[in-house]
Amino acid sequence: MRRAELVTAVVLAALSIYFMWKSAELEIGWIEDEGPGGGAWPFWLAAIMLACCGWTIVNWIRRTTPASDSDLPFMDGYARKMFLLVGGGVTAMVALVHIVGMYGSLLVFLIYYIRFLGQHSWVTTLTIALITPVATFFFFDIAMTMDLPKGYLEPLFLPLYAIFL
């Protein structure tokens, strides 16, 4: 926990510096008759962020916060395993949207989670994994006429459009 606290503060400080540098692409000073420049607001906010990271590091040195004075691991075995399985699964779901579209990706993710992580029966898994994308399709594509990404599965949807739209 103690190491994670320091690493995070340093990473966030670096992020703050990046934000400051990025804001400084616009005028951060006073412009006559226009008031503060466009970069001033984010620049000074990022500067405060940097100061807060410094403050957190000072607290870390003095061991005054719970996280900076804890010998517990940032993530134990269970937490790391679940984080990788679930976080990885969600990341894969987002990545799959680019290839098989939203509906294909939902189907794969639900099967992965319910069957393999949750160890439910195939009947439960397939019932939920099939109903969810279908219901989502009728809500978004048909009722809200909001075209969700289909990826390479686009041709499969053409007959459905012909019927419902």
Binding site: V86, V90, M93, V94, V97, H98, M102, S105, L106, F109, L110, Y113, I114, L117, G118, Q119, H120, T124, I128, T132, T136, F140, M146, D147, L148, P149
Partner: peptide
Amino acid sequence: PFTILAPMIFVLCLVGGFAPTRSL
């Protein structure tokens, strides 16, 4: 079971995160 609820919520997040701006 949470192992059914959690994936459904992730799915709602994915669709809900896409809907306002329709951008990947």
